[in-house]
Write a protein that binds this DNA or RNA. Structure first.
Length: 669
DNA sequence: ATAGGGTTAG
């Protein structure tokens, strides 16, 4: 990671807690104090406030810097505290050191140790110390904000939230630095939604956000989709609260624009910033150049480079690397090549990044051979690699259908490096899957299992595709189910083809399960899929599920599919649902024919216990314009002694009226 | 006396 030392910003802010002019005799005194002003302090702590014109802040500084007691005692006490701090910091047994030396220390001393552990990533001791501080009531605001900050760094945002939520004191809870620590911790751990919710809660509880708060939140916007509109909202809010945009806020905003493809907005902020008197620095330029890289707008990028030069800014490694990205995206491969040579001369091509940018561009433009040449050149120069270059080339080969080359490069990576992250693993998995190397696929999966790497969306997709290709549909189904349980939303196309294959091979219930996974993952689903799953369910005799499909998706299922379902249901569906099914298909717009009524009624007639259902059906029919035909009628009449002759006769006569009016209507037409 | 700050690669 390159850290830029170039500061192009012409503005050097003066820290506002420090006066630029100090008394030369007593450097610890702020300027407006003279020797006479010190005197009243000696006798009375308070008159000094009344007898001088000094502001409160300066008085505080002054008070802090004047030793209240003889300097000998103070230095002795400092020594005692200093050695207690060191004792605890360096002890191998923290608990006993705290027991021994902790009592001599105040909250601010313990905070020193807290920060010491935090800087060294000693998380266990950090929380041990903090727990001790809480038990012994030696915490202040700085302890909380510091501890929460470090908890976020140790990648334990939930713990940070627990700590924050456990704070009882309202002043501490609403303190802006404590809140900023919590928010930063959530942003850094990729929990931006949660962070925004927290922010709103905090404001309602009484937090007064400052520029740091907004700056923290804006950083989160760069990492999420739709981050741009959230950023706009935040900017509006901070302006509304009378806070001032500063150079860094502009820098963050430019990066948000760049990562959200908002090139024009980036330009607008850049201009606005200039018009407010801030001179753009290397960060601002790199973000704007990065925004131009999306469209490969090299003309504008070159203009910016000229502007930087004439402004006296140094073109550092990041700027030139970003410029390379613009050239590559713009398809200027010759110019890109020259720029890499320039980077190399400047010593900026010691790691693989610039090569990766160009190789990636070449591969995506279908120039795999050129990319491979560059890859070999890079290796000959002994450029450091973390696997990025390999994954670009391996996936490039895969994309170009050069599966043997992909497989070979993958195994040569395995042989040389034994380091894996999720991207290189996915790439290799993809290569082995495409080449049909089952053994190697399994080997890679074992590596995932053994390591701390958790499979991501891509891993699952690669595997499911592969299992489908190998006709291992049940395995594909279990993988998809696993993917869903781990919170990843599978692609519709993949689900739909898996549903198809599962249906074809008789795994009807599994097909239905995939359908439900897709349905409940909030994606919009292609309408044809409802009918497809209906056919599968009918084929698998899962008629009750099929009934739900019909009921929920009335509009998108064809007449012929409905008919097929209805016939099956009448034949062998749950008899208690027959009437419900009839009503459902009727209200979906399907015209029920005599054959269907006949089937339904035959089933009722066979089972004398279903008398009520039959009567309900007969009662319902005339209202919808249906009547039974003569053969069905005879079927009922044969058993009418079971139902009560009177009722049956009445119902059938009502139906007759319907059928007469209907035939009249037909005749007049 | 505590909080934050941006740019490049798969």
């Amino acid at each position: 990671m390159e850290i830029s030392l170039v500061s192009g910003n012409g503005i050097t802010p003066i820290p506002n807690n420090q006066s630029p002019l100090t008394c030369s005799c007593f450097p610890f005194l702020p300027f407006p104090f003279s020797a006479t002003a010190v005197r009243p302090f000696k006798n009375s702590k308070f008159t000094v406030f009344a007898t001088t014109t000094v502001g409160l802040n300066e008085t505080r500084n002054w008070q802090r810097n004047v030793p209240p007691k003889s300097s000998k005692i103070v230095s002795l006490r400092n020594k005692t505290r200093q050695s207690a701090i060191l004792d605890i910091q360096e002890s191998s047994d923290l608990d006993s050191a705290l027991l021994r030396s902790g009592g001599k220390l105040k909250a601010q001393d313990l905070n020193v140790i807290l920060r010491h552990f935090g800087k060294l990533n000693r998380w266990k001791e950090l929380s041990q110390l903090f727990a001790w501080m809480q038990q012994n009531e030696k915490t202040n605001i700085a302890s909380y904000s510091g501890y929460i900050k470090f908890t976020g760094k140790s990648l334990d945002p939930m713990k940070a939230l627990d700590i924050y939520n456990s704070i009882k004191d309202e002043l501490t809870r609403n303190n802006v630095s404590v809140c900023n620590s919590v928010l930063d911790c959530l942003v850094k751990n990729g929990k931006f939604e949660r962070c925004l919710n927290m922010f709103h809660q905090m404001k309602q509880a009484g937090l007064k956000p400052d520029i740091v708060t907004y700056s923290t939140l804006l950083v989160g916007c760069a990492k999420v989709k739709d981050g741009y509109s959230k950023a706009t909202e935040l900017v509006r809010e901070l302006k509304y609260h009378g806070l001032q945009m500063d150079s860094v806020i502009y820098g963050t905003l430019l990066s948000v624009c760049a990562s959200n493809n908002q090139c024009q907005e980036a330009e607008r902020y850049f201009m606005e910033m200039k018009s407010e008197g801030y001179s753009p620095n290397v960060f601002h330029y790199s973000s704007l150049i990065n925004a131009y890289s999306v469209d490969g707008n090299y003309t504008k990028a070159d203009e910016l480079i000229q502007e930087m030069k004439s402004g006296g800014l140094v073109l550092n490694k990041v700027i030139l690397t970003t410029l390379l990205k613009v050239y590559v995206r713009g398809g200027l491969f010759e110019k890109s090549r020259e720029l890499i040579n320039k980077l190399d001369k400047l010593g900026y091509a010691e790691d693989e990044m610039p090569y990766c940018i160009l190789m990636d561009g070449l591969v995506k433009a279908g120039k795999v051979t050129e990319a491979k040449t560059l890859f070999d050149e890079m290796k000959n120069k002994n450029v450091k690699t973390d696997g990025y270059a390999y994954s670009i080339m391996i996936s490039g080969f895969c994309r170009g259908g050069l599966l043997q080359d992909a497989k070979q490069l993958a195994s040569s990576y395995e042989a040389k490096y034994d380091r894996y992250d999720i991207v290189i693993l996915n790439t290799m998995l993809c290569a082995y899957c495409r080449a049909g190397e089952m053994d190697n696929v399994m080997k890679m999966l074992k590596k995932v299992d053994e390591s701390a790497i958790s499979p991501d969306w891509n891993t699952f997709h690669i595997l499911i595709r592969y299992f489908c290709k190998e006709k291992l549909y049940i395995l594909a189904y279990h993988t998809l189910d696993d993917m869903h349980k781990k919170g990843h939303q599978p692609e519709e196309e993949l689900c739909s083809s898996l549903i198809h294959y599962l249906g074809k091979t008789g795994a009807h219930a599994e097909a239905f399960s995939v359908y439900n996974i897709l349905k409940y993952s909030k994606r919009t689903m292609c309408n044809a899929l409802h009918e497809k799953i209906l056919h599968i369910l009918v084929a698998g005799r899962l008629l009750k599920d099929a009934y739900i499909i019909i009921k929920d998706n009335a509009g998108s299922i064809s007449q012929s599919a409905t008919k097929k379902f209805a016939v099956s249901f009448m034949k062998s569906g749950n008899i208690n649902l027959v009437n419900d099914v009839i009503k459902a298909i009727h209200s979906s717009g399907y015209k029920i024919d005599q054959k269907l009524f006949h089937m339904a009624i035959s089933r009722y007639v066979e089972d004398s216990e279903k008398k009520d259902l039959l009567l309900q059906l007969l009662k319902w029919m005339p209202g919808q314009g249906y009547s039974v035909d003569s053969s069905t009628r005879n079927l009922i009449l044969k058993k009418s002694h079971l139902y009560g002759c009177q009722i049956v006769a009445e119902l059938l006569s009502k139906q007759q009226v319907v059928s007469i009016t209907k035939s009249r209507r037909t005749r007049t037409k």
